[in-house]
Design a protein around this nucleic acid. Sequence first.
DNA 1: GCTTTACCTCAACTTAACTTGAGGTATTAG
DNA 2: CTAATACCTCAAGTTAAGTTGAGGTAAAGC
Lengths: 162, 162
Amino acid sequence: MSDSNWTVGKVAKRCGVNVSTLHFYETKGLIRSWRNAGNQRRYKADVLRRVSVIKAAQKMGISLTAIKQAFAALPDQRTPTVKDWEKLSRRWQGELNARIAYLERLRDSLTGCIGCGCLSMKNCPIYNEDDKLNAEGNGPVILERVAKRLNQFRNSNAGHQQ
Amino acid sequence: MSDSNWTVGKVAKRCGVNVSTLHFYETKGLIRSWRNAGNQRRYKADVLRRVSVIKAAQKMGISLTAIKQAFAALPDQRTPTVKDWEKLSRRWQGELNARIAYLERLRDSLTGCIGCGCLSMKNCPIYNEDDKLNAEGNGPVILERVAKRLNQFRNSNAGHQQ
DNA sequence: GCTTTACCTCAACTTAACTTGAGGTATTAG
DNA sequence: CTAATACCTCAAGTTAAGTTGAGGTAAAGC
């Protein structure tokens, strides 16, 4: 009963988000609810994990659009199992590693490049980082619009490795 | 002559940004220009490094506001030297390290937490990461609004260590 | 049974970091 | 000298991820 009778308010409190955020996630297709006789939202308990996973993914810098696409890999009819979630998790771990590696490269070349003045030159490792990542024929691109939108992961093919 | 006679177009092309971006950066106080007789912007060559450093900092996830504050530490009257830039760089390296460490913690606890269901619980290491970072009396906070604005670094005290 | 919460919808506002466009002036190439 | 660029200003638009508020209904507490 309480298993499929969560109200927005309870979910919001439990997950530490606003009610409006849950409404918003629903319009984005990230979570789902059914309505009771009085047109109020009711949730199954698994919404809690969904919201928590959304929050965790956001901390990794993954956009809602990419999260939605990742969720698309979850079973549609049955409630996702632990294995389903772990699969998702492993996928994101790969992205997280790529992201960490990217920041490490940035860190390691930062002082040298800022100091030497090569930053505005064509052969600077920092300056050309995007170009390398975005090079054609070089496998799926991991980071999208790096300089523009705060290192968000690309929506269109999040999860590809190599 | 060409040392202080860079036009917006030339700077834009050299730095790989739009002219409108340079206008924008100027309104934000990130770069400066003088005007020629016909009211057109002219730049000193050091604008190239400034723009490049802005771009590098953005790749680290540092906001323009924080970048502006960091630039405030640069000399106002003379053109910044290599040492000036290196100082800035070292400051950001510390933030970059903190950011990398944060993502590593997230990665290492991700699969376990997503799988075990603790994500929505109070004792989950991922779920409570923000709280730990934001705990009072625990030294300066490094990451701000982590879950909200894609891990941007805090504006108000960017650069503080430990 | 009534009053306080909790919900509902829908539109508009918020911030960051830019971009786009309109209407007009300067510079440059030939 | 003139046509093609390049610039100028200022206002408005864009995206992500929500938040805020108005006007109205449902459910819960006592």
